[in-house]
Design a protein around this nucleic acid. Structure first.
Lengths: 211, 211
DNA sequence: GCCAAAGTGGACGGGGGCGTCCGCTAGCGT
DNA sequence: ACGCTAGCGGACGCCCCCGTCCACTTTGGC
């Protein structure tokens, strides 16, 4: 009989594993989820086989690579919910969430996608949405959030936010900030205009070309 | 000596050409610009060679296929500019532009992209932006448009709007409508909340999966 | 130091999109 | 009716990505 599994990676193996995850994080953030597995392997300085042995599918890799962002996301929501002023909390959630998603291009895709295989992101997303729904309810009671807001509007905003592609991360974050501010204005029940963040110049020269 | 070019297509050829354009319009609208040339050819019932002979690159095909949308776009802008109430015109432009872009997924990409090769869309886009800038200026004067609006915000909105992917065209248009309404609220200088369009439920079941 | 087993990366076959070439088909001028 | 030629589409070679297999290398317990 086989004493089943080592459950403990050899030193070089876990080292490689970490390098793979780091490469994945970087590339997913900058290029999105569509980066070839090969390129992640190359960037990590390992062969394709190693990558595939550790992470048989891109999903498993993504799941692992995005735990940080996922944690951050949860933190944002919890933080917003804990805020004494619900409207303030609501605004914070929108602002920070948009920024988070602007920073990592791949995270949005992963967060939005319902993976065919098991993927806890779905559960996390539901949790976030439920929390925010509750927060929104309280914000409506204070009269600051317009009553016809629904959680689906937040999905709308997130999807819209991901449209803000642009080569430079800086520009993307700036655009996201301004966008978030606009959205908050739109959600406000009795809006006294607070000034918007600086103008976002998107895609100054060459946005992207056609394949 | 060669009397240069026929400049007049044979009947079957121009017939094919038309079928190709129609297929391209359909597929670009539903699938986006990334559809394989092959598939357009297949859908049009012609061989790849025929397609490539008529339209050597995807750009040339796209340019031709989107003239309708381009015309519509220009019409929207002109119509908005002609409106006696500039703010009303401004709102119309936003609403209709968002809807137009929601209807054809590929058009947004084509409209946003600066093609490496010649492509009149750039010129058209500049024209539209200039017109809208002028319209916005007038709308500000009436006090209805917030003074810190800049044309780049419109680009922002358009880019955001394209993030509203969803399988069904109906859902996409609905989402776009609600989004446009929100954006208009956000741009309003002294907002008295007009009711929003119906709630947009995006991607009810399976948004999209990971490659 | 030694050696079994864990770990590695290069190499392979498969699939799909790309753009082009070429022998056959069928419009159109006479 | 005929033949010339524009027009056609199947087939080809190229490249890139995918996921897997296998002979070699490294680790770590003794």
């Amino acid at each position: 009989m086989t004493d089943p599994l080592p459950h403990t990676l050899r030193s070089d193996a876990s080292d490689n594993r970490e390098r793979i995850l780091e490469a994945a994080r970087t590339l997913f953030a900058t290029e999105g989820l569509k980066v070839p597995m090969r390129e992640i392997a190359r960037h990590a300085g390992v062969g394709p086989a190693t990558l595939y042995r550790r992470f048989p599918t891109k999903q498993t890799l993504a799941t692992e690579a995005f735990t940080d962002e996922m944690r951050a996301c949860r933190a944002i929501v919890d933080e917003g919910s804990a805020e004494p002023d619900p409207w303030r909390g609501f605004c914070l959630v929108i602002e920070k969430t948009c920024e988070l998603h602007a920073r990592s291009r791949g995270f949005t895709e992963a967060f939005m996608a319902t993976f065919p295989d098991a993927m806890d992101f779905v559960a996390e997303r539901e949790y976030a949405l439920r929390s925010i729904a509750e927060l929104a309810h309280r914000a409506k009671d204070t009269g600051h959030l317009r009553p016809d807001f629904v959680v689906d509007d937040l999905v709308l905003v997130l999807m819209a936010n991901r449209g803000l592609h642009t080569p430079s991360k800086g520009a993307r974050v700036a655009a996201s900030r301004r966008f978030a501010a606009l959205v908050i204005q739109a959600f406000q029940a009795s809006p006294q205009h607070s000034p918007l963040p600086p103008v976002a110049r998107l895609a100054p020269a060459a946005p992207h070309k056609i394949t």
